[in-house]
Design a protein around this nucleic acid. Sequence first.
RNA 1: GCGCCCAUAGCUCAGCUGGAUAGAGCGACAGCCUCCGGAGCUGUAGGUCAGAGGUUCGAAUCCUCUUGGGCGCACCA
Length: 550
Amino acid sequence: MRPREELRSRLVALCAERGWPAGEVAVERPNDRSRGDWASPVALALARPLGRNPREIAAELSGALALDSERWEAPDVAGPGFLNFRLARPYLQDGVRRILADASGFLRSDRLAGRRINVEFVSSNPTGPLHVGHARNAALGDGIAALLASQGAEVTREYYFNDAGRQMDILGASVHARYRQLGEPDFPFPEEGYQGEYIAELARELAAERGDALHQMPLEACLAEFRAFAGDRISAGIRSDLERFRVAFDVWFNESTLYRDGRMDKTLDELRTIGAAYEKDGAMWLRATDYGDTEDRVLVKSTGLPTYLLPDLAYHRDKHERGFDQAIDVWGADHHSYAVRMQAGLRALGYPPDWLRTVIYQQISLIEDGEEVRLSTRRNRMVTLRELLDDVGVDVTRWFLLMRKGDTHMTFDLDLARRQSDENPVYYVQYAHARIAGVFERNERPDLDPAVAGPPESLRLLEAERELELLRGLDDLPDVVSDAADALEPHRLTDALEVLARRFHLWYHEHRILVEDESLARARLALAGATQTALREGLSLLGVSAPESM
RNA sequence: GCGCCCAUAGCUCAGCUGGAUAGAGCGACAGCCUCCGGAGCUGUAGGUCAGAGGUUCGAAUCCUCUUGGGCGCACCA
């Protein structure tokens, strides 16, 4: 059991024995680590209901805890009544052995075993290439999926293609117009058409493949041809960009399939049966106000065509029927009102309120040469994911997009991202990993294997302050991953890896690893090995590489 | 006008779901390589947590209002 869980369950048990309200038990990090590794304010919370002095309560709990002295130092009561706990040295030192013995399992847990979770992200319409906003979505969604999987959940990464509906028609018409303009420059371009240069490129490609054969076709068939061609090409581009970004989807779901097999009609019928849908002005409405939305929403327009909402509800209903215990959607802030609408619809269908968790991330602004680069313009500036990867690479892009909480309006500083220097945090972490690899290469004593912890006595030699700090950093990491998974916040892991890298560099600077003394060298090599493992496993969850040299 | 999000060091941001003296990186300034990788390390300066009320043992964190910024308010997707 992890130390924090051990404390929590012991404290809960002690409270229960005494008939005290155990809901108050919390175990957290002291904000000043010198106070201890863990702290509980439980006595402060109990003081009022029990009508007793909090220090007295803390002392009673402390006396009754009977913690294993190999794992814990004796707890102390501090300040107004905090209980402070400090991990014992043997436990910290043996962390090296635990990590080396199960490197790939170090950050993993099985506490979500048996949970089937669907993480849907990116889900950009196949009407244009992915841009930086989608990249944040991709990094976040993939990071969240990896974190949940690390806790034992069975995770499906899913992409929803809106390949039905009007946007695809407009796309087809746009490419068609560009195609015709190759011969007749004055051919009219659709009013709401897609302006990007990629549209004209698609037109030229199609012209090269098919010549002017398409001129002979009836307009309807011709437009369908263009729509299919453009949709296929663009989705193929999206897939290859994502692959390059190291994002691998398990399911590519096409909206159009919902129309074909009646799943949409079924959803509508169900909503009508339970009275959550009604007819007004020739349209079909969702009674969304009954389920937390600010106004009712149209499901089927008076033209008889569905809005975006109905197929999306049918889609989520489909996820539910596929047996997922939980669905997670990652959406840009411009969709936040749809999140409310979607939740309303799902609540109407009777799903528990937390079945769908929506992760809303704020818009990104790009800074280049100290100035904001406007997105969604036709200017030939770097805005697509592909250009970003060409320019700064996968590792930097993923790290930058993950290092900030999703709800910050983040700034992506291109100049900083390009700089391969100490100003760039991803290199700081990768450098620690590479530096360790360099030491191992330098090691000329084959009997000293950094992947083997050696006898326990040798690990007892790790007692310098920097070494204990590093050991604590290693012991923290599994909890960080676990908490990050629950909060759906990958940035907690980037933070923790920076801290771990710092502790390594500090230690490295102060203590030599390859020393004469064989026992000490063995212990330090093992500590470096454990650190390298932790960095590698952590980076891997974030989809960032751990280089042997840089 | 209504709804959602945000405001913490010069800059970019953490602050673990209400705990103890608010932290880190960058930037600035001053230092460290006969020694396993200097993409590293050491030190200094820098704060009315946007503002005002409230809730309680305790608030950057929760509530209300104000100010400033972002996003959204379609029978578009």
